[in-house]
Design a protein around this nucleic acid. Sequence first.
DNA 1: GTCTATACCCGGATAGAC
DNA 2: GTCTATCCGGGTATAGAC
Lengths: 211, 211
Amino acid sequence: MSDRGPYAKGRERRQAILDSTLEVFSTLGSRGASMSAIARHVGVSPALLQYYFSTREDLLQEVITAWDRDNAERSEGLTHFADWLRGVRHNMQHPGLIHLYMTAVVEATDADHPNREFYARRYEGLTPEIAQEIRNQQASGNVDPALDPERIARILLAAIEGLQIRWLHQPDFDMVEEFLFTLERFGIHPPELLTGELDAIFERAAEAARP
Amino acid sequence: MSDRGPYAKGRERRQAILDSTLEVFSTLGSRGASMSAIARHVGVSPALLQYYFSTREDLLQEVITAWDRDNAERSEGLTHFADWLRGVRHNMQHPGLIHLYMTAVVEATDADHPNREFYARRYEGLTPEIAQEIRNQQASGNVDPALDPERIARILLAAIEGLQIRWLHQPDFDMVEEFLFTLERFGIHPPELLTGELDAIFERAAEAARP
DNA sequence: GTCTATACCCGGATAGAC
DNA sequence: GTCTATCCGGGTATAGAC
């Protein structure tokens, strides 16, 4: 894929729109992030957003899928729960992301919402993924083997989303602390997370993942 | 306060609008619950909704405060956590409520949203209330006294909201089960909740609360 | 005090010109 | 690939009928 050719500009515009969406969302919030507001931020006409993303819902949705993709890429070389914690940290530095995501999940709750299926599948996909990691912890004797891994996964997933809502309302709320504490209640305490050396570990991992 | 006089009709209308709002919300969802849709359901003109509740946000907000009031009233004569569980059950039978509430909390997340303050206060009020009940449990030796009651309260509050989102997406999701399990992880297991006789207990309590 | 009709504004979406 | 013009629908403001 070359940067030249007739498609280069389009791809850049597309990305610029996605970036601006996040930016505007984090400064003006959901109600402020109208198509025209985002367009203004990019420096184009509102109709152009429609050209790249046919509807507003689609635009927001694409920000989320891109985010999911980023998360997956950032997770190289760390254990699953460390990834998760790191993700939470990362998101806390990009408030627009969580704001946009939470708005979208809840909106998609409407029975006839076009993205409803997406979130159902997302939950269905994440749950066993987390459950598998819990099974690993059970195998190594950290987590009580009597506990149902799927159930813990569902609860942790719910907890994190609830924490995010509260954090949006109270930005000084320490999601990492609360989530770490929750993990511990289920017997999950990856050693890396207790040393206070998280950042160093992440740095090293990021370094190692680079080509 | 008599039912007669020139105000009776107004109070009835007002209530009818609140009821219809919930009704329409649970059938048509957030996007479907437009002012005109609700007005149609009540059988009046859209402008009348404006007369009673000046804005749509206010209307939804009033449904929520009424709900909070109901919850408080329904809690007579039961322990706090039993109340809570019962509330969850009750809500699961009225899907519009949770749908509306979750939509509203997340929307109010915008920095300049008029109801933002309300939710901040709501959280601030609920947390110590729950924490107090946890202290009671600690005093009677059920919950590990080393645990910070406020922190547990925050986590439980977050967990329930996260569970509600997932439930909205997957109506067969058993919030009561999941929440009960979460409570147990924190050492909270009110005896009434383990007998399977919940309904009978609620009936008796309701009976006793009647004049 | 209760209610409607009407008019207004803004946001999202579409059509078509350049 | 980009814009302008236009439409449509939802929320809101107002005037006034009953």
